[in-house]
Design a protein around this nucleic acid. Structure first.
Length: 913
RNA sequence: GGGCGAAUAGCUCAGUUGGUUCAGAGCGCCUGCCUUACAAGCAGGAAGUCGGGGGUUCGAAUCCCUCUUCGCCCACCA
């Protein structure tokens, strides 16, 4: 193929789709369960089936793809297993809105069957959107193995897990206060009910005191404590609450058993304000004496804590539910008529107004506190007494904890391990039933016979009650979405069948995700992995940061601060996107991107791609002549620059490999970036040009090295920028592997590491930079060739300058570089880091004052450095205690700076400063 | 209430085991260049008392304490 035809600007959109299809058609993406290669497995965190690609996915999946491509090139049987999650509440909400918009109907109007049918249509139409979008960023997933948590086979696994856990005694049906979303009309787990700060009020309400005979009780109620709330009124007790509307569900007031203020009140009766309901005063150690008046109202049906307290009180208490499923006041006789049917917040206002009127409101103060909200719709959760299914978590947590503690499971960065450990240690039972229609329906059947009441739990619907033979009806509820996600690492591979995939690809290796779902998903996968597979599902959990805007706010649809990855791909290319997020995502930190300035954010990545493109174009178009294979290279023909670049290559191979192994993707990106741009493009390619255009043998060597170095660079860059590297690979003559995606990862060749060459070429670079600096300072036009005289500080320096004299002259645009002594006449002076001195004769153009000033500045800087290093060397403590090599290095510095200082002094004299 | 993280150039951030080759990169800014791979480029340059204070050490951006400011997670004071 003719590289000369390649455009000078890299156009990603012209090639990306083709390249991707080529990978797919060549089977690059498909893992082989029967290969001999060691497996490497990542299971994707399955995006919600309704999701559209956002930057968080962009980051998450780019990281996974970099790791997968890296290990694939290293020869492992790499499987990246993709798929989607049915996302119960989220998806149901989306389609509910859709139905409302389309038909103006609620899901209840359609009925369960029809509504679920509608969701399936939606899923079939748009469910693979996000997976298709992942292709655009180059994700090399094994699409043949795409899974969905509601696939038949997968669903079967979910139900089996429920049945097994039930029969193992780890799933039970419980009656307790759970988190309820009055908007989604379902129960939520603790994790799904997230705390958010809210500005509310704390209401101090007077509960009228009633004697046991129904008479008012007189006299002081508290001998001491100096607490004002209850002192003034002897006929009422003040209670602080944020939720006055729940008082109709109160069953008692309680105070702390040691609270002297109320000691005499125990056993007395008070009346719920605005009602005739009388309730007792009791004690509970759970009461915080310092809070409010120290008297707590107990509302067992609408507060989990109160539920516990009521359970601990002597005697049986009813637990009246006064707020219905939709968050409205109930119609119980306990609820005042004027409040019945009102929304809980309206009811709160009305109740408070009524209390005021009755002079039963002692105080109302602003109050900021954390309240649980539905994680899907952000409605304030209503604690609610109901029957739900729970998983007993403690036994499952034990091996998951052990795995972390004995190092079988590690976190990157490590600190997240503590979060994981803490959660597992404090773990509580998991409410897994959801009052939704979209999801895995719970495989439990209730006997219709009231006298029997048996529950049959089975994988397949029973014909009749297994105890009494009577008719049964299935539980209406479905399972929490996460109850299917936690099986992802093995249910995707065909569990419970003993499949080849399970044999080959379980357990997996790396899990890449954000910290937010450590509890929801990561910890639970580990538990399920141990319980059902007997092994951890992965060995490393790599936790990456969150994508935020420049104000450090999380990118979100509602804030409108998101970035559309597809727009970035079309404007800057997938590789630019990938490079930007990888280079900007050091381990453990958030990724800050500017949604208002895509240019600033992504241009550097695009520019780098363009650089790769152009250096590639140049190199490829110069490979026409004969090329010597590496195994026939004769080092005798190498120039200094050749040895230098080959040594640099070995280092960048080591650096990149180590960085990727340690999940330091940003280090890998930077290492290869600087190698390609600085070492290869700016120096080696420039150095090599005369040989390419000139002498035959030199050209042959140069071409061989150029080809080899560039080929290695493409391999190293491929995991991060797969498209452009694959495209350029296609033009590489005689590539051993037809596709870079399946090519081998480079191994460093130790004999090519050449410290001397690196040292010497470094001196050459410094000399060129010094002359360039002089040119710039004196505005010498590029066309004007000047001469320079260098005074090498050592034989090493002399040999280096001699070896690359032609390079120095070319790159510094020198007519001639003289190698000996000091120059004559007026000119500019520079001293190199190694002590070598350069003189550039500039005749009249020179400004002696300026030169003197510059040399004095230099001298002063060196004096400062010398002072520091000498102080150190004179310090016995330092010389004695610091490691020998550190001291040695300081001595070398001192010598080098002293030499530079001497050279400068001589210059100053020569100029007559 | 408990825990964690961050603060380095105008901006976004590197800086792993303390050692003036670690005070850096990219962007932005200033100067000069359309030098036949690349103006999405080349060359040169200015710019930071490493959040404040204290300590450990021969030596601190790096370790310890403390304060300030942001951010996150967990949490049954209603």
């Amino acid at each position: 193929m003719a590289t000369t035809q390649l455009a000078s600007r890299y156009d990603p959109s012209a090639i990306e789709t083709d390249i991707y299809n080529r990978w797919r058609d060549a089977g690059v993406l498909t893992a082989d369960a029967h290969s001999d290669a060691t497996p490497y497995v990542i299971v994707i965190p399955p995006p919600n089936v309704t999701a559209v690609l956002h930057m968080g996915h962009g980051l998450n999946n780019t990281i996974q793809d970099v790791l997968i491509r890296f290990e694939r090139m290293r020869g492992r049987e790499a499987l990246w297993l993709p798929g989607t999650d049915h996302a119960g509440i989220a998806t149901q909400n989306v389609v509910e809105r859709l139905v409302a918009d389309e038909l103006g109907k609620r899901r209840q109007d359609l009925g369960r069957e029809q509504f679920v049918e509608r969701i399936w249509t939606f899923v079939h139409e748009t469910g693979n959107t996000i997976l298709k979008q992942l292709e655009a960023i180059g994700a090399s997933c094994d699409w043949d193995r795409t899974r969905f948590t509601l696939d038949d086979e997968y669903s079967r696994a979910v139900l089996k897990v429920f049945v097994d856990l039930y029969h193992d005694g780890l799933i039970y049906r419980g009656h307790r206060v759970i988190h309820w979303c009055p908007r989604c009309l379902t129960a939520l787990s603790d994790e799904e009910a997230e705390f958010r700060e809210r500005d509310d009020h704390l209401f101090h309400i007077r509960y009228p005191v009633v004697t046991s005979a129904g008479e008012r009780r007189g006299g002081a109620i508290s001998p001491g404590g100096g607490e004002p709330p209850n002192r003034r009124l002897v006929d009422s007790i003040v209670v602080a609450t944020t939720r006055p509307e729940t008082m109709f569900g109160d069953v008692a007031l309680v105070f702390h058993p040691d609270d002297e203020r109320y000691r005499d009140l125990r056993g007395q009766t008070i009346r719920i304000p605005l009602t005739d309901v009388e309730i007792p005063i009791e004690v509970s150690p759970r009461v915080e004496r310092e809070f409010g008046s120290g008297m707590l109202k107990v509302t067992p049906a609408h507060d989990p804590n109160d539920f516990e307290i009521a359970g601990e009180l002597e005697g049986d208490y009813e637990m009246p539910v006064v707020i219905d499923a939709e968050g409205r006041m109930g119609h119980e006789p306990r609820v005042p008529e004027e409040l019945r049917g009102l929304d809980r917040y309206e009811a709160r206002e009305r109740a408070v107004a009524m209390l005021e009127q009755e002079e039963l409101l002692a105080k109302k103060e602003p109050y900021r506190h954390a309240v649980r909200h539905c994680y899907r719709c952000h409605t304030v959760v209503e604690p609610r007494l109901s029957d739900q299914w729970f998983v007993r978590m403690k036994p499952l947590a034990t091996p998951a904890l052990a795995a972390y503690r004995d190092g079988q499971l590690t976190f990157v960065p490590e600190r997240w391990g503590a979060v994981y450990e803490n959660w597992l240690t404090e773990i509580r039972d998991w409410n897994i039933s959801r009052q939704l229609w979209w999801g895995h329906r719970i495989p439990a059947w209730y006997c219709d016979a009231p006298s029997c009441g048996h529950i049959t739990v089975a994988l397949d619907p029973p014909a009749a009650c297994e105890r009494c033979g009577g008719s049964v009806r299935q539980d209406e509820d479905v399972l929490d979405t996460w109850f299917s996600s936690w099986l992802w690492p093995f249910a995707t591979m065909g569990w419970p069948n003993a499949t080849d995939d399970l044999a080959k690809f379980y357990p997996g290796h790396t899990l890449v995700t954000a910290a937010e779902i450590i509890f929801f998903w990561v910890a639970r996968m580990v538990m399920a992995g141990f319980y059902f597979m007997g092994e951890r599902p992965f060995s490393t959990v790599y936790i990456h940061g969150t994508v935020r805007d420049t104000l450090h706010r999380k990118m979100s649809k509602s804030l409108g601060n998101g970035i559309d990855p597809l727009e970035v791909v079309s404007r800057y290319g997938a590789d630019a996107l990938r490079f930007t997020v990888v280079a900007g995502a050091p381990v453990g930190t958030d990724v800050i991107l500017d949604p208002n300035d895509l240019e600033t954010t992504f241009a550097p990545g695009r520019n780098f791609a363009n650089k790769v493109w152009n250096v590639g174009r140049f190199i490829l178009s110069n490979l026409d002549g004969p090329v010597v294979a590496p195994d026939r290279w004769d080092p005798a023909h190498f120039e200094l620059a050749d040895r230098w670049i080959l040594s640099r290559v070995q280092r960048v191979i080591v650096d990149t490999t180590e960085a990727l192994e340690r999940f330091r993707l940003n280090d890998a990106a930077n290492a290869i970036y600087h190698f390609l741009w600085d070492d290869l493009a700016d120096w080696y390619v420039e150095q090599v040009k005369p040989r390419l255009y000139g002498d035959a043998r030199g050209g042959e060597v140069a071409r061989a090295i150029l080809r080899n170095v560039f080929e290695t660079a493409l391999r190293l860059l491929h995991p991060i920028m797969p498209f452009i590297t694959e495209e350029l690979w296609q033009y590489l003559p005689q590539a051993r592997e037809p596709l870079l995606a399946k090519a081998a990862w480079p191994r460093p060749k130790a004999p090519l590491v050449d410290d001397e060459a690196e040292d010497r070429f470094g001196r050459v670079q410094a000399l060129v930079a010094a002359v360039r600096s002089v040119r710039a300072e004196y505005n010498v036009p590029p066309g004007t060739e000047i001469a320079a005289v260098v005074q090498p500080s050592s034989t090493d320096a002399l040999e280096a300058f001699n070896a690359e004299q032609r390079t120095i002259e070319r790159l510094a645009k020198l007519k001639h570089l003289t190698m000996d002594g000091a120059g004559e006449g007026a000119g500019a002076h520079q001293v190199l880091p190694d002590g070598s001195a350069v003189f550039v004769p500039l005749g009249n153009a020179i400004d002696v004052q300026k030169e003197c000033a510059r040399l004095r500045t230099e001298t002063a800087r060196l004096d400062g450095q010398l002072r520091g290093v000498r102080q150190k060397l004179q310090n016995e403590q330092f010389v004695n205690r610091a490691p020998a090599d550190v001291v040695q290095r300081e001595r070398e510095k001192e010598q080098s700076w002293r030499e530079q200082r001497e050279t400068l002094t001589a210059k100053l004299h020569a100029l007559g400063c």
